[in-house]
């Protein structure tokens, strides 16, 4: 990779429930021997990554995924008329499907990506987790999708309380009674729509794996961490890399069985007996991806290389005991920067 590659990426909302864009850009910036230009794709004009020094060389405002593929395509036609991205790394769950469907068109325009297939994306959806676990022999908690309060009551009775109520893409809450389940159901469905997922509650410790599959069953990278500090939104505010061979075995099993293509995050729960359960599979890099880079596996770089058609060998190991502690920082900028982006939709 000799020439300067232009990488378009989303997820610049480095807020309390952060997107992965800023740490992905950071990983690329720090890849020695490579020169990248970062093109940020933002959905809101106050996403911090738009204004953070050293993150994006150019930023474009994007239409929300809910506006459909036609709007996304139209925006990309404009982006391609004024810049030349070589690779795109979408970092939000909600935009994955539009990008998977637009993949061929973007490829013809010279913009590569390294994404899961539509089938892989669909079958690991939260509301299909039970079926997914059975198909690939992966331990998952029993989950059901519900679309109304009577279905919620029925599944609640079946699963017992406490149980977990989850949104299709985001947000989750623990319900200790049918009333609490109804409260979460109404709150989450109002915000994120249907279906709502109800899941058997497993008490334990949360571990996460950030990884990368090559699409042929090979695990190119995998770094596990234990959440040390969790916010009220369930996000890791601190974490530490761990090297439990059982986690790595489970991760490799997932990649081999599903032939996973692209970056992913496994959310795991270790129960009181020491058994691991896969709670969620996210089809993208997590917001803590820079920890993987710091521990020795530059997953953003490897994803970019695979997208660009280069061969990437599996990364053998990483360092345990590497910690991240997230912090907040007031970035000062002038209204002229905000004005420029707000009015022009780019900067």
């Amino acid at each position: 990779m000799n020439k300067t590659l232009h990488i378009a990426l989303s997820g610049l909302n480095a807020i309390d429930s952060p997107g992965p864009g800023v740490p992905v850009a950071r990983g690329l910036r720090e890849a020695s021997g490579f020169d990248f230009k970062i093109i940020g794709l933002a959905y809101e004009n106050l996403e911090p990554g738009i204004y953070m020094p050293g993150i994006a060389d150019k930023v474009f405002i994007m239409p929300y995924p809910s506006e459909g593929i036609a709007a996304l395509k139209e925006r990309w036609e404009y982006i391609l008329s004024v810049s030349k991205p070589d690779v795109v790394i979408p970092n939000y769950d909600a935009e994955l499907l539009p990008y998977i469907r637009l993949n061929q068109w973007l490829k013809e325009k010279g913009v590569a990506s390294f994404l899961p297939t539509e089938e892989q994306f669909e079958e690991r959806q939260k509301y299909r987790l039970t079926e997914f676990g059975e198909k690939y022999n992966i331990p998952v908690p029993e989950s059901h999708s519900v679309n109304n309060l009577s279905e919620l009551a029925e599944k609640g009775k079946h699963l017992g309380y406490p149980l977990v109520v989850k949104g299709k893409f985001y947000e989750a809450g623990i319900a200790r009674s049918p009333q609490e389940a109804e409260d979460w159901f109404l709150k989450i469905s109002h915000k994120w729509g249907f279906p709502i997922i109800v899941q058997k509650y497993i008490k334990g410790e949360e571990f996460n794996v950030a990884g990368l599959g090559d699409g042929n069953g090979e695990t190119i990278a995998a770094v596990a961490m234990r959440k040390q500090y969790i916010t009220d939104k369930g996000k890791a505010w601190g974490g530490i890399t761990v090297t439990d061979p059982r986690i790595m075995e489970l991760t490799r099993h997932f990649v081999t069985k599903t032939q996973w293509r692209g970056p992913f995050e496994l959310e795991l729960m270790k129960d009181a007996r020491g058994d691991f359960h896969v709670m969620e599979i996210n089809p993208r890099m997590p917001a803590w991806i820079y920890l993987a880079v710091a521990a020795g596996q530059n997953i953003p770089l490897a994803t970019t290389q695979l997208a660009h058609g280069e061969e990437v060998k599996p990364m053998p190991s990483y360092e345990p005991g590497i910690m991240f502690i997230r912090y907040s920082w007031d970035l000062i900028t002038h209204v002229s920067s905000f004005q420029e982006f707000s009015m022009k939709g780019e900067r």
Partner: peptide, 16 residues
């Protein structure tokens, strides 16, 4: 388990 002389111990498997 990694233990240093000051009594700090770290388990790399669990992160504790």
């Amino acid at each position: 388990l990694a233990i240093n002389d000051t009594g700090f111990a770290f388990d790399p498997m669990t992160g504790h």
